[in-house]
């Protein structure tokens, strides 16, 4: 029984894909990314820059109070001053650090809790999975903003409790997603093959499962971040989130909301509450554009034609 001449395994090139290194693939993808994704990347980059270097960029102090409240836009106060005479432009810059920093910390914490438990539930299955899943079902039966309001009543509105409360509530969604994508991976033959080889649970989790659930989790991180960011902004706007004198975009809108009624006389005055609100919106738009593009890429959807 000799090997057939017409056939050789290495030459079986009918379906052989083109080879590219990972970096080449990333570059190629980026070059093809639509304008909206590029816009998103640039905006996120700017925000992060401002957030990281806010003390160097801000012309005045975060809580520094000047003599004239409601000062108009001029050279000294680029965007004027607020109701008690603080420089709006400086507070906007400091607000970036606070608002983005807190939202980022909350999202990370929620992924730590939800991702860890979701992975554990998917792999071990059985009663742990059942218990966690039913518990999450109950928590998700209460709208999260309402739940957050209730918990804030009990624990008060410190930054620490704010981060913990939102993170725990948001981790329910992370849990569900992690669990469902991880379960799709755990039924794969390569996981069974690893079990048959006698691999330990930790190795299977780290080497076989985690690398394969990263793309949806990364996308979810973007979505969760913008959701957390909006929730915290909403709470601050309601006066229940980040407390004064810490500069924060949500409470800046609340504090200066009444200035909108001067729009007919001085449009710049009306902008005082609108600018921080727009700052919030712009960042979430940017994140959503990037996530949208990323999801489109990784889900393998090609409905371009």
């Amino acid at each position: 029984m000799s090997q057939s001449n017409a056939y050789s395994a290495t030459a079986e090139v009918g379906q052989l894909r083109e080879r590219r290194s990972r970096w080449e693939t990333i570059k190629l993808e980026l070059r093809k990314a639509p304008i909206s994704a590029w816009f998103g990347f640039i905006v996120i980059g700017c925000y992060l820059f401002v957030a990281l270097f806010s003390p160097l960029l801000a012309p005045h102090g975060e809580a520094e109070i000047f003599k004239t409240p409601f000062a108009p836009w001029d050279a000294k106060h680029i965007l004027g001053t607020d109701q008690i005479g603080r420089d709006v432009f400086s507070r906007l810059i400091y607000g970036a650090t606070n608002t983005i920093g807190i939202a980022l910390a909350t999202t990370l914490l929620s992924f730590l809790i939800g991702g860890g438990l979701g992975l554990a539930a998917a792999i071990t299955g059985g009663w742990l999975d059942q218990l966690l899943s039913r518990f999450v079902d109950v928590l998700m039966a209460i709208p999260s903003l309402i739940f957050a309001l209730m918990l804030l009543t009990i624990f008060g509105s410190s930054i620490f409790s704010l981060i913990c409360i939102i993170a725990v509530l948001d981790s329910t969604r992370v849990f569900r997603l992690t669990r469902s994508v991880a379960i799709n991976v755990t039924v794969m033959d390569y996981v069974e093959a690893a079990k048959l080889r006698g691999e330990k649970l930790g190795w299977i989790m780290r080497r076989e499962i985690l690398p394969n659930i990263m793309p949806p989790l990364i996308a979810e991180f973007g979505l969760r971040f913008s959701f957390v960011f909006l929730t915290i902004a909403a709470l601050s706007f309601l006066g229940l989130g980040i407390q004064p004198p810490t500069a924060d975009w949500g409470s800046m809108v609340r504090d200066n909301a009444s200035m909108i009624q001067f729009a007919k006389y001085d449009i710049t005055a009306a902008m005082t509450p609108m600018i921080p609100a727009a700052a919030i919106a712009l960042l979430t738009v940017a994140v959503n554009f990037v996530v949208d593009w990323f999801l489109h890429k990784t889900s393998g959807l090609n409905d371009e034609h």
């Binding site: 913008s226 909006l230 902004a233 909403a234 706007f237 949500g250 809108v253 909301a257 909108i260 009624q261 729009a263 007919k264 009306a270 509450p273 609108m274 609100a277 727009a278 919030i280 919106a281 979430t284 738009v285 994140v287 959503n288 554009f289 949208d292």
Partner: peptide, 29 residues
Amino acid sequence: TLTTISFPEFFVAYILILFMSQLWFDFPA
């Protein structure tokens, strides 16, 4: 719609107040 869902509700509300109640029309704010 992707843009709209990225807006906080109060931003949408204040944009509407600015234009519909202050600048162009006179709906109650």
